Simulated assay, not measured.
Amino acid sequence: MTEIRPFRVEVPQADLDDLHARLALTRFADQIPGSGSEYGVSVEWVKDMVDYWRSGYDWRAWEARLNAHPQFTTEIDGQNIHFVHVRSAKQDALPLILTHGWPGTVVEYLDVIEDLSRDFHLVIPSLPGFGLSGPTAEKGWNRYRTAKAWVELMARLGYERYGVVGNDGGSLVSPEVGRLAPDRVVAVHVTQIFSFPSGDPAELQDLTEDEQAALQHLQWFWENMGAFNQLQSQSPQTLAHAIADSPAGLLGWMGQLIGGHLDRDFTLTNIAIHWFYGTASSSIRFYYEDAKAEHPTEPTTVPIGLAGFANDFQSIRRFAERDHKTIEQWNTYDVGGHYAAHEVPEVLAADVRAFFAGRG
């Protein structure tokens, strides 16, 4: 099936009522007094967010904001794919396909649409099994199968040459789009390059102070916040029973990576989309599928550029150069974080614009 169908976000009122009823009946976890977030996402934070979700958060306003942009669905490789498609007033503009990660949704990119669409046609899909694409029903939806679907999506839209942009999981998918279609992808722009030490001690002998600090930051993250990756890569269905049934449970689980310093509306909108469209379970399966995939060993060849932000994964260039043959940009900023398109949209948009300038 190659039909492209218009789409609008229209959550039935009954689903909103059901959500509010479930939130009102939340059975909160216990917590050692004064422990804060020492053991993970705190009960205090979850209670505050549940209260706001019930009494202060306006889903319909965010629904309207999403519906302000043209949206569509199509079936690719047996999977429903939702995408935002905003065409620039410049008819000859370079198309870009922008990919979010977990636990995000297309909401990640709402704050850069107006800016980037002045110079680019924008395609912003929901990952298979995430949010507005709905759940996956087959095995194997890893970064490589997703990248193949993106190549098909851009071809279906009539885009013969395009750029690729990604964050988080999108930073895994995007280079693979370039690997699959090097004759069509002009370049790849990501906010993380997930290249790690190979285990060869020689790689670690002459690290600079900055590189050592980046490795220490990575080690701290895995030792203190890496449980989500371990569980979702090994036993996603075990977790799914809790987060598919309880909105407060989903909030607590996803809140570790999309809460904290981010504003409550942004956090809740991403989580609410997973709740309403039933993708709490299928979105975490992405980790399992990716962990079980066979990963290429040859480096990518399409030009790649990094925009790294302060409160985020710290990419290390010497390892990135092992995995990507043509690194043409390596910019780091002392602002922003993991959701740069939302936190510092003007900085990210300017970086994307400069990187793709002259590549059309």
Score class of each variant (00 low, 15 high):
residue 71 Q to I: 09
residue 72 F to V: 01
residue 72 F to T: 05
residue 74 T to K: 05
residue 74 T to P: 03
residue 74 T to A: 07
residue 75 E to P: 09
residue 76 I to Y: 06
residue 76 I to D: 06
residue 77 D to W: 08
residue 78 G to I: 03
residue 79 Q to N: 11
residue 79 Q to L: 12
residue 79 Q to E: 14
residue 80 N to M: 15
residue 81 I to R: 14
residue 81 I to E: 13
residue 83 F to N: 06
residue 83 F to Y: 07
residue 85 H to M: 06
residue 86 V to W: 11
residue 88 S to D: 12
residue 88 S to I: 11
residue 88 S to E: 10
residue 89 A to R: 14
residue 90 K to V: 08
residue 91 Q to L: 02
residue 91 Q to M: 00
residue 91 Q to H: 02
residue 92 D to P: 12
residue 93 A to F: 03
residue 93 A to Y: 02
residue 95 P to D: 06
residue 95 P to G: 05
residue 96 L to Y: 05
residue 96 L to P: 10
residue 97 I to F: 03
residue 97 I to W: 00
residue 97 I to G: 03
residue 97 I to A: 01
residue 98 L to H: 09
residue 98 L to A: 14
residue 100 H to Y: 07
residue 101 G to Q: 14
residue 102 W to H: 13
residue 104 G to Y: 09
residue 104 G to P: 07
residue 106 V to T: 12
residue 108 E to D: 15
residue 108 E to V: 14
residue 109 Y to D: 08
residue 110 L to V: 10
residue 111 D to T: 12
residue 111 D to A: 15
residue 112 V to G: 05
residue 112 V to D: 05
residue 113 I to Q: 06
residue 113 I to K: 04
residue 113 I to R: 02
residue 115 D to S: 06
residue 115 D to A: 03
residue 116 L to G: 11
residue 116 L to A: 09
residue 117 S to H: 12
residue 117 S to P: 07
residue 119 D to V: 02
residue 119 D to L: 03
residue 120 F to M: 01
residue 121 H to L: 09
residue 122 L to K: 00
residue 122 L to C: 01
residue 124 I to W: 05
residue 126 S to P: 09
residue 128 P to A: 13
residue 129 G to P: 13
residue 129 G to I: 15
residue 129 G to D: 11
residue 130 F to V: 13
residue 131 G to N: 07
residue 132 L to I: 00
residue 133 S to I: 12
residue 135 P to V: 04
residue 136 T to E: 08
residue 136 T to Q: 09
residue 137 A to V: 07
residue 137 A to R: 04
residue 137 A to D: 04
residue 137 A to I: 03
residue 140 G to R: 03
residue 142 N to H: 06
residue 143 R to G: 07
residue 146 T to H: 10
residue 146 T to G: 13
residue 151 V to G: 03
residue 153 L to Y: 06
residue 154 M to K: 02
residue 154 M to Y: 02
residue 154 M to N: 00
residue 154 M to W: 00
residue 154 M to G: 00
residue 155 A to W: 11
residue 155 A to S: 15
residue 156 R to D: 14
residue 158 G to F: 09
residue 160 E to N: 10
residue 161 R to W: 08
residue 161 R to N: 10
residue 162 Y to T: 01
residue 162 Y to M: 01
residue 163 G to V: 01
residue 163 G to H: 06
residue 163 G to L: 04
residue 165 V to H: 00
residue 166 G to L: 04
residue 167 N to A: 13
residue 170 G to Q: 01
residue 173 V to C: 00
residue 173 V to D: 01
residue 175 P to M: 03
residue 176 E to W: 05
residue 176 E to K: 10
residue 177 V to W: 08
residue 179 R to A: 06
residue 180 L to K: 03
residue 180 L to D: 04
residue 183 D to V: 04
residue 183 D to S: 09
residue 183 D to Q: 11
residue 184 R to E: 02
residue 187 A to M: 08
residue 187 A to Q: 06
residue 188 V to E: 04
residue 189 H to Y: 09
residue 189 H to S: 05
residue 191 T to D: 05
residue 192 Q to M: 15
residue 192 Q to D: 13
residue 193 I to C: 11
residue 193 I to H: 10
residue 194 F to T: 04
residue 195 S to T: 00
residue 195 S to C: 00
residue 197 P to L: 15
residue 197 P to I: 15
residue 199 G to P: 15
residue 199 G to N: 14
residue 200 D to G: 06
residue 202 A to C: 09
residue 202 A to P: 12
residue 204 L to N: 11
residue 204 L to C: 12
residue 206 D to N: 12
residue 206 D to P: 07
residue 207 L to F: 12
residue 208 T to V: 14
residue 209 E to S: 12
residue 210 D to S: 14
residue 211 E to A: 12
residue 212 Q to Y: 10
residue 212 Q to C: 10
